[in-house]
């Protein structure tokens, strides 16, 4: 109990630091680059005077750290700001000073609308990844150097060589357009998540196939596994109770590290399938220079990463008591 408490306290502290670091970097990056937020809001028609006035009202002429502190203050109150572009009910609203700022969509609402869809997609993708990677990786690890190992190697080399955006296009063309088996493009029900999830799974599985087969092969080489047979344990029991347990830790850690890559895959795939999730929101926000949305997304996605990694490390420490943090 004491261990769990100090563990979470310490790790959450570190996590907050990471989130601050990331959000400040992104914040500063967005402030120093060309492209005045006031201009994005007001549109190209506004006069320089109005522009300057708006910018000053919004605090855009203050030093960046000050702006950042102000922003953090709002975030602490649960206010992530409002989109520059998106209107409340969806759709974008460019330029024009007339619209009251209140009508623009709140960043938090945008995230709340899109995040569940993305979690669904990511969850499905992980299921597919497990279905592909577990059999290949375990067989490859147990029979190192023999044909399942080769199969795992070739399969993972092929999967990792398929560019995700290209695979997405080909699948959309063949499976949805030509054969009409599974719908994709856009979103109406969960069936629309199948193809995007499959593409993400193909992208993720090579890493897990390799990591699984390497860590299982390494564990099988450990003296205690050989000795367990001399001690009279059955091969099946050794595998299910000891080898899998020991091999799980590196794979879990890889999972934690790959959360970022998973998000990256989600982003590209959602963009191609026009899947209205968190990733599509990100791409649109970036392309439209919708700074408050980008900042909110950075904080939220980093927090997700941090929390999942804390959980992963906690589970790892439960499995292997030697792990220290």
């Amino acid at each position: 109990m004491g261990f769990a408490l100090t563990f979470f306290a310490r790790r959450l502290g570190q996590g907050v630091l990471i989130v601050l670091l990331v959000s400040f970097t992104i914040f500063a990056l967005l402030r120093v680059v060309p492209g005045d937020p006031a201009r994005i809001i007001l549109g190209p028609m506004a006069t320089d005077e109005v522009l300057e006035q708006t910018a000053r009202d919004m605090g855009l002429r203050d030093p960046i750290p000050l702006q950042y502190m102000r922003y953090l203050g709002q975030v602490a109150k649960g206010d992530f700001g409002t989109s520059f572009i998106k209107a409340k009910g969806g759709g974008s609203m460019g330029g024009g000073r007339d619209e009251a700022r209140g009508e623009r969509a709140r960043v938090l609402d945008l995230v709340a609308e899109t995040l569940p869809l993305t979690l669904q997609l990511a969850g499905l993708a992980l299921v597919f990844t497990a279905l592909i990677a577990l059999p290949l990786g375990i067989a490859g690890g147990l029979m190192a150097g023999r044909w399942p190992d080769k199969l795992a190697l070739y399969a993972s080399s092929i999967f990792v060589s398929l560019p995700n955006f290209w695979l997405a296009i080909v699948l959309a063309l063949v499976v949805t357009a030509k054969l009409g088996w599974i719908p994709s493009i856009g979103y109406q029900n969960i069936a629309y998540a199948i193809l995007p999830a499959f593409v993400i799974a193909i992208e993720m599985s090579p890493l897990f196939i390799r990591s699984l087969s390497v860590s299982i092969a390494d564990t099988m080489r450990h003296p205690f596994v050989e000795l367990a047979q001399v001690r009279g344990l059955s091969p099946r029991r050794i595998f299910s109770h000891h080898v899998l347990r020991n091999a799980a830790v590196p794979v879990l850690n890889l999972f934690g590290v790959q959360i970022g890559a998973l998000l990256g895959g989600v982003l590209v795939v959602e963009y191609i399938f026009d899947y209205p999730g968190f990733g599509l929101l990100t791409v649109q926000a970036v392309l439209q220079r919708d700074f408050p949305v980008i900042q909110g997304i950075a904080i939220i996605s980093t927090s997700i990463f941090v929390v999942i990694n804390i959980l992963v490390d906690f589970v790892s420490a439960q499995i292997d008591p030697r792990i220290e943090y």
Partner: peptide, 23 residues
């Protein structure tokens, strides 16, 4: 270590897109 922690937590592709759209 803190820098790489932070870097790992944000997808490389997002970072690249942000930097490239603004430059």
């Amino acid at each position: 270590m803190r820098l790489t922690d932070a870097q790992l937590s944000i997808p490389l592709i997002i970072l690249a897109i942000i930097i490239l759209t603004v430059s």
